[in-house]
Amino acid sequence: MTEQQSNLDLPLPTGSAESDSIFSAATPYQKRHLLDLESLSRGELERILHDSEGFRQVLFRPVKKLPTLRGKTVVSLFFENSTRTRTSFEVAAKALSADIINFSVSTSSVSKGESLYDTADTVKALGADFIVMRHHSAGAPHFLANLMKEVSILNAGDGCHEHPTQGLLDIFTIAQRKKRIEGLTVAIVGDILHSRVARSNIWGLTKLGAKVRLVGPRTLIPTCFKDLGVETHYKLKDGLEGADVINVLRIQRERMEANLFPSIREYVLMYGITKKRLAWAKSDAILMHPGPVNRGIEVDQDVADGPQSTITEQVTNGIAVRMAALYLLAGARDT
């Protein structure tokens, strides 16, 4: 009887029986590659985010497998270390029944001096339909995309430039929690200078109508970022006040050779997100972090594990947006 009641509560269709998504699926995604969010239109962004919702559902089923990309091969080509992005793409490809091959760069001919193009050409000749690529040089995936027309290239991070699927999964996570993007205030806190995650978030969020604030030490926020239509704040309190979303970036110790702030300890004192500082934002603000988290540095332990944290949701959502990206690139018209 209770089952019956719950079913009767299902809304009967009014006008549109198709979708309750906040994102429009009206625009097709016609690009063969996914290189950055800067070059995508609002409609293309919305289409990827819309379809991600359908893929997210699959991740909660007993059988997390779709036949959609059967017979396709995804090669992951990582010139920089990565655990979560690489694994997330792997889970996404497998859930779509694609074959995934990890091309291990450090043990391959690249370490013997092979050029990027020759490596990618070899990967293509091995039958790749998709190359998921991370490279330490900004623009490396764009360089390959211009040379390889039949293979779809997905940028999994290029230098300090962009990390489009991370930007998409962050926006998708915000939309899941807040049911909108337009009009929200998103504070991105930390090392903006070295962050490809920040750049992809800025492009995506501003195109979808959110207000973006960059918060951090003066040395880590390039002044030219004001030209992208964002606010910059050097005081954490100013940056967090009234924010709906706080996206905290990792302090990348490996990129900190240039003494951009005096010490980690000083950074923590000024910009570390504690429970008290979290309360400067709106009471229902969400706290995001792309991972891996330096607990006790950019985010306190109890904040990272608290109810406002979306850190584990971001991991799940990352699989969904990567499935959507692979699916849409497979059907793209543009060659």
Binding site: S19, A25, E53, P67, L328, G331
Partner: peptide, 19 residues
Amino acid sequence: TLYRDDLSTLGSQPIVGKT
């Protein structure tokens, strides 16, 4: 959508709905 047998044909990109 994701179970269709014509997804591999060129230019096929149907909108993914919810099950």
